[in-house]
Simulated scan of single mutants.
Amino acid sequence: MVSAREEILNKLKKAIHPEPEMPDFDAPVYHAIDKSLGQAFKENLEAVNGSVYLCKSEEELVEKLKTVLQNVPEKEVVCSENELQELLTKNGIEHQDYQERQQAIEAGITSCEFLIAHTGSVMGSSALQGARQMLVYPPQHIVIAKKDQLVDYLHTAYDKIQEKYPDQLPSQITLITGPSRTADIEKTLVMGAHGPRELHVFLY
């Protein structure tokens, strides 16, 4: 008859695992991206409740942007970057400068440094005009980017931002992956808790 002690020891022996295999340190850290960078970025950002618009031209971008802004009062659309202001003005999209705003802000339009396909992330920095406020303050954050700002992985984005600012990096580099959210209170997901409740990225 097996004693209780022997039974416990037998269970412990069976629970002992063999030596773990050594990890392959030469294996790729990231999984391969098996589709176009634009499509991968779209799928990964939309998986975390962002919206992505892949546009073939500036005209298509403007058309889709006007649709997103159709329910936003003109005086509550804000943009602080000169190049984007010119784009908006040329296409009849009313807006105000962040520094000159006189009313509440609903939608903030910015550019970005890079878009990261692997995680669906937007990289911004303090080098962008008004970026410290515009990346986090407006309830709707709208990003307008060009296809040459799209990269595969995070390490590529860091390499490129160092190339872009070789003498001194921006004091703040921000990664945005979807709208702001939290589930701290009773594990209920709340959007827009600490920043924008909506994130729209236009890529052309």
Score class of each variant (00 low, 15 high):
D97I: 05
C55W: 05
E94H: 08
F114P: 01
L45P: 06
Q102T: 11
Q168I: 03
E94W: 01
G92Q: 13
Q103N: 08
A47D: 13
K75P: 00
D152T: 00
V143C: 14
N91P: 04
T156P: 00
A145D: 05
E94P: 00
Y137L: 15
V122T: 07
G130E: 11
V151F: 03
L128H: 10
L54P: 02
L61P: 07
E86M: 06
K160S: 04
A131W: 01
A145Q: 04
Q70T: 10
V143F: 10
T110M: 14
I173H: 04
D148P: 00
G108E: 07
G130D: 10
Y98R: 13
E86L: 11
L128V: 04
L128Q: 15
L69D: 08
G120S: 11
P170F: 04
E106K: 13
P139K: 14
Q140R: 15
C55Y: 05
E58Y: 05
K64G: 01
D148E: 14
A104K: 10
V62D: 09
N82T: 13
T119M: 06
D152Q: 08
I93R: 06
A107R: 02
S121F: 11
K64C: 02
Y158H: 07
L154D: 02
L61C: 08
N49S: 13
S126R: 10
Q129L: 04
P170E: 05
N82L: 12
V77Q: 13
V136C: 12
L150D: 08
P166F: 03
G108N: 08
Q85F: 02
I109Y: 06
K56I: 00
C112V: 03
H155Y: 11
L135V: 06
S171I: 01
E58V: 15
S171Q: 10
R132A: 09
E113G: 10
C112G: 02
N49H: 14
E113N: 15
L54E: 07
Q70W: 00
G50T: 01
A107M: 05
E60D: 07
K75W: 03
A107E: 05
Y153A: 03
L150V: 12
S125K: 11
D152R: 03
P166Y: 03
K147Y: 06
Q99P: 00
G124R: 06
L128W: 02
Y153F: 15
S121Y: 11
V48I: 13
P138D: 12
A107D: 04
V151Q: 03
C55A: 06
T67F: 11
F114N: 10
H118R: 15
I173L: 12
Y53N: 07
Y165H: 13
S51L: 08
Y98Q: 09
A107P: 05
E106M: 10
V62I: 15
S80P: 01
G108H: 08
C79M: 12
Q70I: 06
G130A: 11
Q162G: 12
E81R: 12
L135E: 11
L154T: 14
S57W: 11
L154P: 01
E86V: 12
Y158K: 05
V78T: 12
I144R: 08
A117E: 04
N91W: 03
H95C: 06
L54T: 01
P138Q: 11
M123K: 03
Y158C: 12
R132K: 13
S51V: 08
E76G: 02
S51H: 15
M134Y: 01
A117T: 02
E86G: 03
Y153W: 05
R132Q: 08
V52H: 04
A131D: 07
